[in-house]
Amino acid sequence: MTDTPNRAYMRLTPAQIDTIQSTVHAVLGEGAVVSLFGSRLDDSRRGGDVDLLIEAQPEPVLLDRARIKNRLEMQLQLPVDIVTASPQHASAFARMARGQAQVLTGFVK
């Protein structure tokens, strides 16, 4: 996981990042860490899903994942894919995502 966010390489606006963080924190609490991975980290590409890695203790349950996905898709008007992990458990896919993910921080009021 990258400690420092790098907005220059993230195809999300500050407002979109605020929306993502506030939505995730409203469902899971302030301790949840949200990172972006996938095509939206690539400035040379266009469009694409918003791929989020959400790490929380305990790992988010299915209904919370569904709740976050619905709320974000409604607010962002973009397709959102969510991968979850906890400090104790991360699937191989979550670990792959974590390897390239950039933490979304610093925009929540």
Binding site: L62, L63, K69, N70, S91
Partner: peptide
């Protein structure tokens, strides 16, 4: 919509983590 998304997430996850499979079906 929550029920619809939950069912789609559960249907599209090809998990071999049996705790997660159990959680999906319990939900």
């Amino acid at each position: 919509q929550l029920a619809r998304t939950a069912r789609n997430l559960a249907a599209h996850d090809y998990e071999t983590d049996y705790d997660k499979v159990a959680e999906h079906f319990n939900t």
